[in-house]
Amino acid sequence: MLNMEPIVVLSGRAGVGKTSVAAELVARMPALHAQTSAMILKIRPNSIRTRIGLQEAGNSLDVETDFSWIARETLDVIRENPHHPIIVDAVRVPRQVSKIRTAIPTHVIHIHLTASRPKIIARFMARKRIIDDGLAYETIEVDDSEKWNTELAAISDLVVDTDYRSPSETAATVIDFTKR
C-alpha cells in the first residue's frame, strides 16, 4: 500500500512560488499534483472559492480533524496512484506535516520555500488568480495559516530561497534533493 516514490510536501508563504514549483516538479518527475485547495473543495464542496474562503475552510478542517485532513487525502491519492511521486501543494501548519509523516512514515520530503517579503508581494500582485481577485497581500498574510513559516522552515528537510531562483531552478534543486 505504501508508495515507495517520494511524497514532496511544499510549504511557504502565499506568493512564494509553491504552485509554480509544484507545476515544474509535476512536469519533470513526472508526479501527481495534490493541491490542498482541491482537497478542501472535495471535502467541503460548498466552500467559498476565494483565498479567504479556502483559508477559513482549511483552518476549520484543521480543528475538526486534528490537522489530519491533508494526510488522509494524500493517502487517498496514494491508494489511487500507488507508483507515482506526489507533490502536496501545500501545508501551512507544522502539525499538518507531522500528521503526514505519521500516516506515511517513509519517503515524505518536506520542502519549505522562502523569499523576501518585497519579492513575495511583487509575485502575489503579478499573478492572476481568481481566488485572489481584489485582495491585498496584507489581508492574506494575517490569516492564522500564514503565521507558521518560521516553524515550518525549522522542521523541513530542505529550505530553498526562491528570491533569485526561477521555479525551474527551484524544482531542479528539489529533484536533486529527493535523489539523496
Rank of each mutant, 00 (worst) to 15 (best):
I100F: 06
D143S: 08
K128Y: 09
M39A: 04
R44C: 10
V16E: 02
P94C: 06
L41N: 02
E73R: 06
I121Q: 15
H107W: 09
I131R: 12
V93P: 05
R95Y: 02
V63F: 09
V26R: 13
D144G: 02
T139R: 12
S11K: 05
T50G: 05
D76V: 03
I48L: 13
P82V: 15
I120N: 00
I130Y: 10
R127Q: 12
G15N: 01
L135E: 04
V21A: 15
H33K: 13
A90G: 00
L10G: 00
G12M: 02
K119W: 01
S37Q: 11
R92H: 14
H33Y: 13
V26H: 11
F67D: 03
A22E: 03
M29C: 05
E138G: 08
V9R: 02
I87P: 01
E73L: 00
R51Y: 13
P94H: 10
F124L: 08
A38V: 08
I43N: 11
A23H: 04
L41R: 07
T139Q: 15
R28A: 08
I43Y: 12
M39H: 06
R92I: 08
H83V: 12
R28F: 07
D143N: 08
I87A: 10
A27N: 01
R72A: 01
A90R: 05
P45L: 14
A23T: 00
S98E: 14
R13Q: 15
N149M: 14
H33C: 14
I111C: 01
T74W: 04
K128Q: 13
S37M: 13
S47K: 06
E56M: 06
K147Q: 14
R72H: 02
L32W: 00
V26E: 15
R49M: 13
I7T: 11
I140R: 00
E73F: 01
I43T: 09
E146H: 03
H107K: 15
P94V: 10
R49V: 07
E146T: 05
D62G: 01
I111E: 01
A71D: 01
L32Y: 01
V142E: 02
S60Y: 03
N59F: 06
V9P: 03
H112R: 13
M29D: 12
